[in-house]
Design a protein around this nucleic acid. Structure first.
Lengths: 362, 362
DNA sequence: CTGTTAGCGCGTTCAG
DNA sequence: CTGAACGCGCTAACAG
């Protein structure tokens, strides 16, 4: 669209090298290198001459050559483990992770390389077999065994999802978020609040379950729940089991919005009204929460910001960040849990802890 | 999870080089290179010795060094242009593209680098500034001006979305798909069939509009429609305008499922019943189509397969593929357009052209 | 069939 | 403040 094309055309499709730039500027390649590296110790006149030569030739340092010669990497790896390959395209969570990580990487002038592997097979991915072009990797859904292995390799690793002390991690405040959602249902006067939890192997879903339990226990209410796999099919099955076992529930906290969309459909198919008969609150605040009728109440988690933070942790000075960084969640009340049941209210019920939110689209 | 770690630990964190492998196998580095490149002209005994040495050391060729020396690239670039950065995490289309492209790249032992740019700024992305590590780029939402520019660069480029003769492209059969959707509504006896089209700048949405128009014109019916931007907010606004201008419509073909979820909500909010008063058919067969109540009828397009095909076109011999490769779509009838209105039926109506599909979850 | 040699393009010493 | 020389790890020619 500007110059590089003509530059490339005239020399027969070959990219210019640092040597040509140096020649054109009347300096040595070392000086060009100093200029582009932003190092000091170059006279202003010289620097300007070099910069002009760079502009004229449209030269860009070849990443391969730069890295071979000892330069730092210029790619960050995003390695996602999924139970099923299709899950990547199906669960909006991953797209949000990618959006956040990609934006932060771009801001730092880095490329983002995405790799998807079956659960438990992260270490087999090519990026982990070395290569100096990677500055490090953000890993998603890793087990702690995989994490310790990967942490033993040369490059730094940050996990999305707490893995103990194996590697640094970033996470939403799952316990507080889940407990807040359950509290919201409690305050409405809901009597029998169930949960549909995520899979056991996932640290986030364990924490959300813990938050739900904590809240109900404090309130002296019985826990009732099923667990599912963070996908719609298994969530629908779990919801059916739940209704079968406890037909009298009047609220459900679901560990992800994607699962909640399926739960909603099962409830409606069973003839129940939402929120009148049963209230539903999800977790994530992902796009599907706005697509259902009624729209889903949910616990907002800042997935993009978490992914971005993970990348910054990777590229920042090693050991500078806390072991497990947490970002706040926020309850978003929509039609699926609003208005509260008009009947019973808890004595001394608090005001609703969150603002209402009734957008139809977005 | 096996040897490389110990290998890396004993030599002080430095990766082994081809030279060490060669020494251990008692051959020259050139022979090791031949073995890993799978070239013939190596005695079986020698080859085996080398392979053992590789296994023992846990060596992997450094991609930077390999490329500097003239080897082929090992990354494919996926460059997506979006009107708004957030759209990447919001529209399931992109996740599906990524899933398909990533799977194919992995199958070929290549890495996938994802870059997102604002509409019209694709050429500014770093991958296009050269670098021998890329085998080529798949571009999404490029304009034809951008495409001709990018095609002028060294590496091959394939577009998702027809761009004329600028670059090779892959596409679903938009016209047939859209026309089939409209035909499905026609056959049901729907009287006033509207459309909500996608943005003008997008070739796919232009083709879908053309398919809709073709079908209605053939049937001698009036066209009525609005256009929106492939997002929920603008689709909801378009739906409201449509209902205002033509309150008597009884069917809408929407150019994407994401938009259709918003249209559905607007219809319901307006007091209309779906499908009884108004039938809705979307396009894509993306996950959101299954999340609504009623579930969305839609035109299935094989996004993953298209992305995979785009990658194969890139990595295959240049010029070996047709300029614009098309993959078939398929109408999926769900509750939002089923059953047909019981009232009027067209004389000589055909049988429904597609199988029914009533899954609640997936 | 295999070894030797010569770069690939750049960062980084070390002299000057 | 700047330049000359070296080498990163590998592949591609050519010899043998």
């Amino acid at each position: 669209m500007t110059d590089p094309v003509s530059a490339r055309e005239r020399d027969g499709g070959k990219a210019p090298t640092i040597e040509q730039v140096a020649a054109l500027a009347g300096v040595s390649t070392a000086t060009v290198s100093r200029v582009v590296s932003g190092r000091d110790g170059v006279r202003d006149v010289t620097r300007t001459r070099v910069e002009q030569a760079i502009a004229v030739t449209g030269w860009t340092a070849d990443p391969s050559a730069r890295q071979l010669a000892g330069g730092r990497g210029d790619e960050v790896v995003l390695a996602l483990a999924v139970p099923d390959r299709r899950e990547f395209g199906t669960d909006p969570y991953y797209a949000r992770v990618l959006a956040g990580a990609g934006e932060e990487a771009a801001r730092q002038g880095l490329s983002l390389c995405v790799h998807v592997a079956p659960l438990g097979e992260l270490p087999a991915l090519t990026p982990f077999r070395g290569g100096r072009r990677h500055v490090g990797a953000v890993i998603v859904n890793a087990s702690s065994e995989e994490a310790v292995f990967l942490a033993g390799l040369a490059r730094p690793v940050v996990s999305m999802g707490d893995l103990g002390t194996a590697v640094p991690s970033v996470d939403p405040e799952n316990i507080a978020g889940a407990s807040g959602a359950a509290g919201h249902l409690l305050v409405q006067g809901r009597q029998r609040i169930a949960t549909i939890a995520g899979p056991r192997w996932n640290p986030c879903s364990r924490e959300r379950l813990a938050g739900y339990r904590y809240c109900l226990r404090e309130a002296g209410r019985p826990e009732v729940g099923e667990s599912a796999d963070f996908n719609r099919v298994s969530a629908a099955a779990a919801a059916r089991r739940l209704l079968q076992a406890s037909p009298d529930i009047d609220a459900i906290f679901v560990a992800s919005d994607l699962m909640a969309t399926a739960v909603l459909q099962v409830l409606i198919a069973s003839g129940r009204r939402v929120p009148d008969d049963v209230a539903v609150v999800g977790f994530d605040d992902s796009p599907p929460a706005l697509m259902t009728t009624p729209a889903l109440s949910t616990v907002h988690q800042p997935v993009e910001a978490l992914a971005s933070l993970a990348v910054r942790t990777l590229t920042g000075p090693p050991g500078a960040s806390p072991q497990d960084q947490r970002l706040a969640t926020r309850l978003v009340v929509r039609a699926s849990s609003d208005p509260p049941v008009p009947s019973v209210r808890m004595p001394g019920a608090l005001a609703l802890p969150a603002s209402r939110d009734r957008e139809i689209a977005g």
